[in-house]
Amino acid sequence: MKSADKTPSPARPSKPERDELRRVQIVGAARSCVLRHGFHAASMAQIAEEARMSVGQIYRYFANKEAIVHAIVERIVSDRLAWIASTGRQTDLPRVLAGRMLSDEDAEDHALLLEVTAEAARNPAVAEIVRLADRRLHAQAVATVRLDHPHLDAAQAAARVEFMAVLHEGTAFRRLTDQPADPVLLAEIYREVIARLLPGPLPPNGS
């Protein structure tokens, strides 16, 4: 009589894979703690409790809170770089800005960056993390603008990217307040400004 077939059990993750899962778990816990308590008040003990780990285990993967901040910012930067490279160029930016149509994840990332930026004013290590992240995002955005608008030199593209960054970050901040302007009228203004800033076709209105 043949023995019943047994489904092989899934292979146990390797140590590097387990370590990466732990880091992701810690970073997710830190994001939650920072959003709930603010950066300065979020302690390693709170992060450990949120991650269901001991503080000692946290220190096995991250030397200090600044190292966790670096991982949080790196994740946000990676997501935004991916957005720039994929759907960012097809986005109807005037409509998004005027309607403050930021996704929940983007709004959460912005809240985290506000906390990190506030800490950067007091902590040189965090300030350097913010500067490096901004350089990466800015460089990728400039490269994308020059790809779509090859008549612009590097300095011209950089100035336009900086202007667009101010619009986006200001909109993310204003999302916390009431909307005093008609989004349709505001979108028309944004469309005129961006068309002058970056001549060329934009996604059709309402797309």
Rank of each mutant, 00 (worst) to 15 (best):
residue 105 E to K: 11
residue 146 R to E: 03
residue 128 E to R: 07
residue 142 V to C: 14
residue 138 H to Y: 14
residue 139 A to G: 10
residue 169 E to N: 11
residue 165 A to I: 09
residue 147 L to T: 03
residue 121 A to E: 10
residue 105 E to L: 08
residue 116 V to I: 15
residue 170 G to K: 03
residue 169 E to W: 06
residue 89 R to A: 13
residue 143 A to C: 03
residue 114 L to M: 12
residue 139 A to N: 11
residue 145 V to R: 00
residue 168 H to S: 12
residue 107 A to R: 13
residue 105 E to A: 08
residue 157 A to C: 04
residue 150 P to F: 04
residue 121 A to T: 07
residue 128 E to L: 02
residue 87 T to R: 14
residue 119 E to K: 09
residue 163 F to M: 15
residue 121 A to S: 06
residue 97 L to G: 00
residue 163 F to A: 15
residue 114 L to F: 09
residue 168 H to M: 08
residue 146 R to M: 13
residue 147 L to R: 13
residue 118 A to N: 11
residue 153 D to Y: 03
residue 167 L to S: 07
residue 148 D to M: 05
residue 130 V to Y: 02
residue 156 Q to F: 04
residue 88 G to I: 00
residue 95 R to N: 09
residue 155 A to C: 04
residue 165 A to C: 15
residue 156 Q to I: 02
residue 126 V to N: 01
residue 151 H to D: 15
residue 143 A to N: 05
residue 160 R to A: 14
residue 136 R to F: 08
residue 128 E to V: 06
residue 118 A to V: 08
residue 110 H to A: 10
residue 140 Q to F: 12
residue 102 L to E: 02
residue 160 R to G: 14
residue 158 A to Y: 08
residue 101 M to N: 13
residue 148 D to Q: 08
residue 117 T to R: 12
residue 97 L to A: 02
residue 112 L to W: 00
residue 164 M to F: 09
residue 162 E to Q: 14
residue 112 L to P: 00
residue 112 L to E: 03
residue 96 V to I: 15
residue 169 E to R: 14
residue 124 P to N: 01
residue 139 A to D: 15
residue 153 D to I: 05
residue 137 L to R: 09
residue 134 D to E: 08
residue 144 T to I: 07
residue 158 A to H: 05
residue 156 Q to Y: 10
residue 89 R to G: 02
residue 108 E to A: 14
residue 134 D to K: 10
residue 106 D to H: 04
residue 104 D to V: 13
residue 145 V to F: 15
residue 140 Q to I: 06
residue 151 H to T: 05
residue 93 L to P: 00
residue 101 M to Y: 04
residue 150 P to I: 02
residue 142 V to L: 02
residue 92 D to L: 09
residue 139 A to H: 14
residue 158 A to G: 11
residue 142 V to P: 04
residue 106 D to R: 14
residue 88 G to S: 01
residue 108 E to Y: 00
residue 116 V to R: 00
residue 149 H to G: 09
residue 103 S to T: 10
residue 132 L to Q: 14
residue 131 R to N: 06
residue 85 A to Y: 04
residue 122 R to V: 04
residue 160 R to S: 06
residue 97 L to N: 05
residue 98 A to H: 10
residue 155 A to F: 13
residue 138 H to L: 09
residue 157 A to R: 02
residue 128 E to C: 07
residue 154 A to D: 09
residue 98 A to N: 14
residue 150 P to M: 09
residue 100 R to P: 11
residue 136 R to D: 09
residue 115 E to M: 06
residue 121 A to N: 05
residue 88 G to K: 02
residue 91 T to F: 10
residue 164 M to T: 13
residue 107 A to S: 10
residue 113 L to K: 00
residue 143 A to F: 06
residue 142 V to E: 03
residue 87 T to L: 06
residue 110 H to D: 11
residue 122 R to I: 01
residue 144 T to E: 08
residue 146 R to Y: 02
residue 112 L to N: 00
residue 121 A to D: 09
residue 109 D to M: 00
residue 118 A to D: 13
residue 117 T to H: 10
residue 107 A to Y: 05
residue 143 A to I: 01
residue 92 D to T: 08
residue 133 A to W: 11
